[in-house]
Amino acid sequence: MDQREDPVPDPRSLRPKAARRSAVDPQEPQRPDRRAAILLSAEALFAERGYAAVSVRDIATRAGVPVALVGYYFGRKQELFGTIFAHRQVYITERIARMEAVECGPSNPQAVADLVRAWAEPVITLRGSEAGDVFALLVARTAWDPGPEATEIIERFYDPLARVFVAAMERALPGVGRDRIIWAYEYAVGALLMYVGDKRIERLTQGRARSADPALCEDFVRFISAGFHTLRRE
C-alpha cells in the first residue's frame, strides 16, 4: 500500500503572525474628553430624534470619534441610554427632596400648591437653562416613547418619583382615593410634558408666547393645583 507523504507546509504559514491591533487606542482610558463627547452627543441625538431613530454610528459621528469607542465606554446603545439618565439623576433627586420637604398635613393650607411646585418647578427651570435644556427635552420625548427601552427608563428613574408625589398628595388630600390621585398625577404629567416639550403654543399665539417660558411657572402651578383640589370637592 502506497504511503503518501505529508504535504510540505507553505513557508509563509510558518512566519509568526503579527499581533492583532485593537480597534481602540490603548491610551483611550486617559481620554475622558471623548467619553464626555459621546455622552453629550447621544443625549442631544436621543432628544432630537428619539431612541429608536438613533444609531451608534450617528452618535460616533456627532461626537467625532470612532464607532468602536461608543461600545468601549458605554457598552450597548441601551446601556448608553441609561447612563445618560444616571448621569443626570441629580435633577430627579432634587425634585424628590423638595417634595419630601413639603408639609402636607392640615397645618399647611397651601400643601397642594407647594407639592405641585416642588414637583414641576425644577423641570421648568431646567428646560430654560443652557445646561439642562437638552435633557429636559429628552425626558419629554422618552415619556412619550412607547418603546421598551424608554419604558424601562421611566420605570427605573421616574416611577419612584411618582410614588413619592402620590403618597404626599394623599396626605394633602385626605379622603381622596389613591387611584384618583394617580389619575390626576397622569393628567399633570401630560400637561408638564406639553409645557416643556411642545412648541405649538408659539404657533397658536403667533410668536407672542414661547415654549417652556419659566415666567409662567406659577400659572402652571395654580392650574394643576386647582385640578387636584376638585377631587376633594366632589
Rank of each mutant, 00 (worst) to 15 (best):
R141L: 07
V116D: 09
V134T: 15
P106D: 02
A131Y: 03
Y91V: 10
M99Y: 09
G147F: 02
A101L: 07
A143N: 10
L138E: 03
I154Y: 04
I154W: 09
I96M: 12
Q110T: 11
E152D: 04
P109R: 12
T83Y: 14
G105E: 00
A97G: 06
A150K: 01
R141Y: 06
E79S: 13
L80H: 05
F85S: 13
L80M: 05
A143Y: 10
L137T: 12
H87G: 08
D133N: 15
D133V: 13
E79T: 12
F81W: 14
E155N: 03
I84D: 03
S129A: 06
M99E: 10
W144C: 11
E103W: 07
G128A: 08
I124G: 02
S107G: 15
T93Y: 08
S129W: 10
A150R: 00
L115D: 02
L126D: 01
L137P: 04
A143C: 10
A140Y: 02
L80N: 06
A120I: 05
V112L: 02
T83L: 13
E130Q: 13
T142R: 04
A143K: 14
F157M: 05
P146I: 00
T142N: 05
I124K: 04
Y91T: 11
R156C: 02
M99Q: 04
L115N: 03
Y91M: 15
K77W: 13
A101S: 02
G132F: 06
R98H: 03
A101F: 07
I84Q: 05
W119S: 01
A118L: 12
V139N: 04
L126N: 01
Q110N: 15
F135P: 09
A140T: 02
G132W: 05
W144A: 14
V90M: 09
F81P: 10
Q78Y: 08
A131D: 05
G82N: 09
D114I: 10
A143F: 14
V102P: 14
R98D: 07
V112C: 06
D145N: 07
G147D: 02
A120R: 07
K77M: 12
F85D: 14
T125R: 15
Y91W: 13
A136M: 03
L126K: 01
A111T: 10
A150H: 05
A111P: 11
R117I: 04
I96P: 06
D145A: 06
E152Q: 00
H87N: 07
F157I: 05
G147I: 01
N108S: 04
G132L: 06
R88M: 03
